[in-house]
Write a protein that binds this DNA or RNA. Structure first.
Length: 293
DNA sequence: CCTCAGGGCTCTC
DNA sequence: GAGAGCCCTGAG
């Protein structure tokens, strides 16, 4: 458990003496698409129907605006994974020199506990796509089918509940301009609707069985399935391999172009139960450094 | 203007 | 099990 103290302020809370929490690292390490970076370096976003603004005053002090102590303990402790001891994770992973550097670089990363449904759709949209376009498509879906929540003179939108999408036509999905992925979104909606996919029971399965179930959805392959499991099902042994993770793993650890399967088994042996955390540090490092093949 | 790649997946061979 | 094609767009 992380150690920190909470104080309530006007329409918000201050978290003091917190460690391993940098808003920039958390929201830009590839696990979420809808948090907005403000001019002051804070991030505004919506989860569990609540809009909040998150600002690091320094590396040990965080202000969460538009919330209170009750919501903090009921919602945000879990969302920001504050019950987990990242210091211990970092010590274990830092035995490796490459990891030590990557961890230093992204020292404030935490893996958010997001909604499986939102992550399923988000990472379907992410396939062979760029972050601005992913965000744009998701925001269109939210503006069209989510619920408005006002904050600070602006309107934010919740991620639409599955039921809201059940009766939509494929053309109603296509407005989000996700191209060939629209039919995959549609397929995901249908499979959730008819019960072919039950995300809450999948989340209780062991990783290999869960991956297999998730991949029943068109548009969900091994990488997307691993993202869903890591970012919304607390399966931290998942090691999603996208182009960046492939590059960084090959560049620093394996030294040559290898197959996805070899990268997976490398991650299992090297990082074990902590593979997902390692993946996040490596991904953020590789992408910010723009490592080329 | 054209070309390419971008947090892969499906389909076909 | 390898490779082309896929929607769409910004960058070069």
């Amino acid at each position: 458990m992380e150690k920190f103290s909470i104080k309530e302020i006007q329409n918000g809370i201050v978290i003091e003496n917190i460690e391993n929490f940098e808003a920039r690292h958390i929201f830009e390490c590839g696990q979420c698409f809808r948090w907005i970076r403000e001019n002051d370096g804070s991030y505004t976003g919506i989860a569990f129907g609540k809009v909040i603004n998150v600002l690091n005053i320094d590396c040990n002090k965080v202000i969460i605006n538009n919330t209170n102590i009750e919501d903090f303990y009921n919602i945000w402790v879990h969302y920001f994974d504050l019950s987990r001891d990242y210091r211990a994770i970092k010590i274990l992973l830092s035995q490796d020199e490459v990891m030590r550097n990557a961890i230093e670089f992204g020292h404030g990363i935490r893996i958010l506990n997001q909604s499986p449904w939102e992550i399923l759709i988000s990472f379907i949209v992410s396939a062979n796509n760029s972050i601005p376009l992913i965000s744009r498509s998701l925001n269109i879906l939210c503006e069209k089918y989510g619920d408005p929540v006002a904050y600070n003179g602006k309107t934010y939108f919740t991620f639409p509940k599955p039921e809201r999408l059940f009766n939509l036509d494929i053309l109603d999905i296509a407005i989000c301009r996700a191209g060939f992925r629209c039919k995959y979104i549609f397929d995901a909606v249908q499979k959730v609707r008819c019960g072919d996919i039950d995300l809450s029971s999948i989340s209780k399965l062991p990783i290999d069985k869960a991956r297999e179930e998730l991949m029943k959805v068109n548009g969900v392959g091994p990488k997307v399935a691993d993202c869903i499991m890591l970012f919304s099902m607390q399966k931290h042994e998942a090691y999603p391999v996208d182009v960046w993770v492939k590059r960084v793993t090959e560049y620093y650890f394996l030294g040559k172009d290898v197959k996805m399967k070899e990268i997976q088994s490398f991650a299992n042996e090297k990082f074990g139960e902590l593979a997902g955390f390692a993946q996040q540090y490596l991904f953020y490092f590789a992408r910010e450094m723009k490592i080329k093949p």
